[in-house]
Design a protein around this nucleic acid. Structure first.
Length: 568
RNA sequence: GCGUCUGUAGCUCAGUGGAUAGAGCGUUGGACUCCGACUCCAAAGGUCGCAGGUUCAAGUCCUGUCAGACGCACCA
């Protein structure tokens, strides 16, 4: 597919000797509305270089543009040089590219041979999987798919929170208030209950905290009783997490959690010592970061046990050796920004030149009725419950609208759309924004939602099915002349660049919002014009457009982790 | 106190330094004998937190300020 800005910048470079085509391409933009043209060059910056008024420059340039089959006309309007594309050429080019590439439309091989490690989801063992974890999971999964689509080799890691002092707390809680039966029956909810109980009791009796720390020290020393309990808690949790991942249709390449690095930390600590980075402070071992304006990075606590920074540093070195990553991406809450800044700096101080390949991708916090989610206080909404509600609601709608659909299909589609609604909503806003969880909002299927885009996709499928004939790839592009059709095609043209932007900004919401735009453009066209018309040539041309939209919606939905069912 | 992030329509949010700041929800009024109405059209609704500055041009960049969120040593 022709790169329109590239082509125009090359043409302009011929008649503006002062600039090369790369510089000119940077200056080109898409005008705010179709009446102004398809690509524009604002001439204000040229004014200084050429020592003429922008208006004069635009007019002179307009007169010098050579005839080009891709460009229908050029206009100078108050300092802007506006290019109008030859519609027929453009329509043919965009649609045949989208049709040829099909479910590959928008993909590239720009990342060929490069590994991208993405660390996401990472729920804590023995704690419930709640709305907060959804963000990391959904964003990470989407980035995983986006990088793969662009030819990179994504490696998804679920860095499970399966090690640390909270297990000491859990062991103490279990010994005091738990029982084998209640945990077996209650699962994570029961584990959470005794964890909450621990914090309530610890407020009255702070010695419980010390007891918990002791148990974690025992774990690190290989105490059998402690490790058995730990393994048990872990098994129960993993089983429940898997249910959520199955619903979300998410898999990982590795589930090596924090405990995996337990035996890999001592050499790293030794390395830090050898490189003279460790200092003792208040009985703990730290890396001093004062000259970088940061608080120290704690490596070993005064009781000899390790911290998450120790594990993160160890894991990064391990991953570099194992995967030789081009980037190692951490999808976690913005609250942890300082932590990542600190240990990224430690990696740099250790002399590793790949420190700049470590990337923190932060996201805003999820609050609940103005308060933040807190496992320790039991103030959470379980993701499992949200997904179940969304699926239930979808099922009800399908039963009303599509009563003839058979039960197994109905249930599968309800899952795809219910889950889709929740994930889509999570990926709608810029990830850095805080979100306030609301049942009403997450279960609202009207407007800019996952169901809206999925419905539009199903609508394209329905049209293609009703046509009862395959789209002839030799469609007549000259028949697609309405402004609604051209609008859709311009939006289709943007898709490959949209995917790259989402990758560069590590921002899945760019794709989410694009899908809404495309669906809106398509629905407007659909409403204005009949597609299954008598005229075979016109019908075929419009169906080509429908098919291109179908591919693009499906590809985009896939990139944000949603299914694109053919019927809904 | 220091640091980071956020502040745009009643609400939730878009907006690569460029032309008249855009969507959805909600409100009001329309469009189904018609390809799937989970759709579409229209109206109303804005001192882009505030004040300076840079620029031919600022919602966008800089400085200050206010408000909110988050973080700042043995939790992750």
């Amino acid at each position: 597919m022709l790169d329109i800005k590239q082509r125009i910048s090359e043409i302009l470079a011929e008649i503006i000797p002062a600039l090369d085509s790369g510089e000119i391409k940077q200056m080109l933009e898409y005008p705010p509305n179709d009446e102004m043209g398809d690509v524009a060059l604002p001439c204000f910056k040229l004014s200084r270089i050429l020592r003429k008024s922008p208006i004069q420059i635009a007019e002179e340039l307009a007169g010098k543009i050579p005839a080009d089959p891709k460009i229908a006309k050029v206009e100078a309007v108050s300092g802007y040089l506006n290019f109008f594309l030859d519609k027929e050429e453009f329509v043919r080019d965009v649609l045949s590219t989208a049709l040829n590439k099909g479910n590959e439309y928008g993909s590239r091989d720009m990342g060929k041979g490069r590994n991208i490690v993405i660390d996401y989801s990472a729920p804590n063992i023995a704690k419930p999987f709640h709305v907060g974890h959804l963000r990391s999971t959904a964003i990470g999964n989407s980035l995983y798919r986006i990088f793969n689509f662009l030819g990179y080799n994504s490696i998804g890691i679920n860095h499970l929170g399966d090690w640390g002092t909270q297990f000491g707390k859990l062991i103490v809680a279990y010994k005091n208030w738990g029982s084998k039966d209640s945990i077996e029956n209650g699962g994570i909810k029961e584990l959470m209950a005794i964890y909450v109980k621990f914090h309530e009791e610890a407020e009255k009796d702070p010695s419980l905290e010390d007891e918990a720390r002791d148990w974690f020290v025992k774990m690190e020393q290989g105490n059998e009783e402690a490790l058995q309990l730990w393994q048990w808690f872990k098994d129960i949790s993993l089983k429940e997490f898997q249910k959520v991942y199955d619903l979300l249709d998410i898999t990982f390449d590795s589930q090596a959690g924090e405990s995996f690095y337990e035996d890999k930390m001592p050499p790293v600590i030794e390395e830090l010592r050898e490189k003279n980075l460790l200092t003792e402070s208040h009985g703990a071992m730290i890396v001093d970061l004062e000259e970088y304006n940061m608080p120290p990075c704690l490596i070993i606590k005064k009781d000899g046990s390790t911290l998450y920074a120790t594990r993160d540093i160890t894991a990064a070195i391990y991953r570099k050796n194992t995967y030789d990553f081009d980037k190692c991406i951490y999808v976690t809450g913005a609250a942890q920004s300082l932590h990542f800044e600190q240990w990224f700096k430690v990696i740099e101080l250790m002399g590793y030149d790949w420190h700049d390949k470590l990337v923190h991708v932060p996201f805003g916090i999820v609050s609940l009725g103005g308060e933040k989610l807190a496992t320790r206080k039991g103030k959470v909404v379980l993701l499992e419950d949200i997904l179940a509600e969304a699926i239930k609601k979808t099922l009800k709608i399908i039963e009303e609208k599509n009563p003839d659909m058979d039960e197994s299909e109905r249930e599968e589609i309800a899952r795809q759309m219910g889950v889709g609604a929740v994930v889509f909503s999570d990926l709608s806003n810029n990830r850095i924004k805080d979100v306030s969880f609301s049942w009403d909002e997450i279960l609202n299927f009207d407007g800019e939602t996952g169901p809206y885009v999925q419905y539009t996709h199903a609508r394209t499928c329905s049209l293609l099915k009703r046509a009862e004939t395959d789209v002839d790839p030799n469609f007549d592009a000259s028949l697609l002349t309405t402004k609604e059709e051209f609008r859709v095609i311009k939006t289709l043209y943007l898709f490959p660049d949209i995917v790259v932007s989402a990758m560069e900004d590590l921002e899945p919401s760019i794709i989410t919002r694009y899908l809404v735009d495309l669906a809106q453009d398509f629905n407007r066209f659909y409403h204005e014009h009949s597609i299954l018309v008598e005229d075979e040539a016109l019908k075929n041309a419009r169906l080509a457009l429908v098919l291109a939209v179908k591919h693009t919606l499906a590809n985009g939905l896939n990139l944000i982790g949603l299914s694109a069912p053919e019927r809904v």
